[in-house]
Write a protein that binds this DNA or RNA. Structure first.
Lengths: 110, 110
DNA sequence: CTGATATCTCAGCGATTGGTGAGATGTTCC
DNA sequence: GGAACATCTCACCAATCGCTGAGATATCAG
């Protein structure tokens, strides 16, 4: 034994492994905007067209369309034209992608 | 009857209620940063001091301290000095606040 | 007390981001 | 075809955000 039996100092552990939170951060960034979060919440109840969501959220349609483009690239939503009136783009959630995002966030908020 | 029995037009619903996503957006904004998300992930396994988290995350200590201040104000984490060596501020998660944030996010990602 | 350590605070700067405005594309109605 | 409608794209600008650097505070060791 070296010297005494004094209680061990708090000895900060400076070798902790870095947690990988990239997926959670990417998902959170998509949710961290009132329009994008509102879109996801609206689409949780079923498909909607751009003008419906813009009206519900009190936002301009081209603004909503911009956000939808980002969410499309991220794979969170899909668009398809209405079969009766093809002027309307109806958006719906990609439930698998949403589940993946949810899992990534829960890994941090566990 | 008015005229015919043609299929009803898609008739966008322009009177949908605006979903309230403010809490989810606030929680997502806190998670939408690699350092803050990393801190939460580290604290999920137990308390840590600032220098430990800074080392694990590869960030400077004053930077980590800045983010911790924001998370403290949001109520997500608590700080207390180590009883043996009071130089160290040990941070721990507020599990109730984390549960609230999780619930707000799941309300959108439902 | 002095120097080293751990943390905090904050002004300033550069990068990122969301909204706006204008124009383009595609579709329906007449 | 032409007008109205629904959506998309993108450059531009203002606001926001995170990092840095410097200095302040608090604690501990000798």
């Amino acid at each position: 034994m070296t010297s005494t039996d004094l209680p061990v100092l708090p000895a900060p552990r400076l070798d902790l492994p870095a947690p990988d939170v990239r997926d959670a951060v990417a998902s959170a960034a998509l949710l961290a905007d009132p329009i994008r979060a509102g879109i996801l919440r609206l689409l949780a109840d079923g498909p909607h067209c751009v003008c419906e969501m813009a009206a519900a959220l009190g936002a301009r349609e081209n603004n909503v369309s911009n956000h939808l483009a980002r969410m499309r690239e991220a794979g969170l939503v899909r668009a398809s034209r209405h079969t009766v009136n093809a002027r309307f783009q109806y958006y719906e959630r990609d439930d698998l992608a949403v589940a993946t995002a949810r899992a990534a966030l829960l890994e941090v908020l566990r």
